[in-house]
């Protein structure tokens, strides 16, 4: 049995390392694996979205993006709710750093949209700092209109593209 558990750990570690951003291996993962036997290696225990400390939980369950109105960088109330969740997660998982990506829809000139994306990313950064996160953990970058998520030329797509996305990774704060 001891041998089997060891095998399960190894497989689990391999699966984790194959997962983007899943570079953590903590107690709750191990707990799931301990219950596995040789006939039933329980992969769901590693499913990040169910693991509150996983990057998947951050990006999918809490939500890694907030949306903005046209030509605006003011946070909406639903955006603030999402960011409250992000701030809580980042406080708990203090070895993570964040880069906030600001984006714009295609209705604007390239340079202006870069600057607008910077405003949006900064609005998110300031909000997270106001919730107690260390400023050195959060950087910003703007992509302007260079990286749309949705490609149609209609408001339904534009609304998804006017966004700020919080990208997390483990590292040293600046």
């Amino acid at each position: 049995m001891k041998h089997l558990i060891k095998t399960a750990f190894l497989i689990g570690a391999l699966m984790l390392s194959a997962c983007t951003n899943a570079d953590r291996f903590n107690d709750s993962d191990a707990a799931g694996l301990n219950g596995a036997n040789s006939n039933n290696i329980n992969q769901s225990a590693l499913d990040g979205a169910n693991n509150p400390s996983s990057p998947q939980f951050f990006s999918q369950t809490i939500g890694n993006r907030v949306l903005f109105m046209v030509d605006a960088s003011t946070l909406t109330s639903s955006g603030r709710n999402t960011l409250d969740g992000q701030a809580g997660w980042l406080s708990t998982n203090s070895d993570y750093l964040a880069v906030i990506e600001g984006h714009a829809d295609e209705q604007g000139t390239r340079e202006y949209n870069l600057a607008l994306g910077a405003r949006r990313a900064n609005a998110v950064r300031e909000y997270l700092i106001s919730k107690g996160l260390a400023s050195g953990r959060i950087r910003t970058v703007s992509y302007g209109k260079e990286r749309p998520l949705a490609v149609c030329s209609e408001e339904s797509c534009y609304a998804q593209n006017r966004r700020a996305v919080t990208i997390i990774s483990i590292g040293q704060s600046s």
Partner: peptide, 9 residues
């Protein structure tokens, strides 16, 4: 050129 700092360009 433009520089952005703290969201301001």
């Amino acid at each position: 050129y433009s520089l952005a700092n703290g969201g301001n360009t």
